[in-house]
């Protein structure tokens, strides 16, 4: 079962993503910010990462780890072009705006990790 890393400071968003992904047949690992994710990313096939978070935000996380060894999709309410550009340059593989439908998320996840 493929492991997906959810990085979001909102417990309810983590809960909903987890519900959606486990329903889609994926295993889930949760991290509450970029710093926490640094310790939990090993073995994950994909990371879904919020942008605005305490300690280490989503953009800083992508800039730190790049796109190796797993693709990272930003999952946020933000839509500022400069942020999208920064994430893209740092190696993020996608930008998805909340709120999303579970099937949209699963389709993106499937496209990236199968």
């Amino acid at each position: 079962m493929k492991k997906i890393l959810i990085i979001d400071d909102s417990p309810s968003i983590r809960q909903q993503l987890s519900l959606c992904l486990t329903g889609g047949g994926y295993e889930v690992v949760e991290a509450q910010d970029g710093l926490d994710a640094m310790d939990k990313r090993a073995g994950c096939a994909l990371a879904l990462c919020d942008v605005n978070m305490p300690r280490m935000n989503g953009i800083e996380f992508v800039e730190k780890v790049g796109s190796q060894p797993m693709p990272i999709v930003m999952l946020t309410t933000e839509g500022k072009p400069e942020l999208i550009d920064r994430a893209k340059k740092a190696g993020a593989k996608g930008w998805m705006v909340k709120p999303f439908k579970p099937e949209q998320l699963l389709s993106v996840v499937k496209k990236l990790v199968g």
Binding site: E78, I84, G94, W95, V97, F100, Q104, V108, K111
Partner: peptide, 13 residues
């Protein structure tokens, strides 16, 4: 003024 993108929009790079 800082507008939001449409909910659910997906952009894969």
């Amino acid at each position: 003024e800082e507008g939001l993108k449409a909910a659910g929009s997906v952009e894969l790079f």
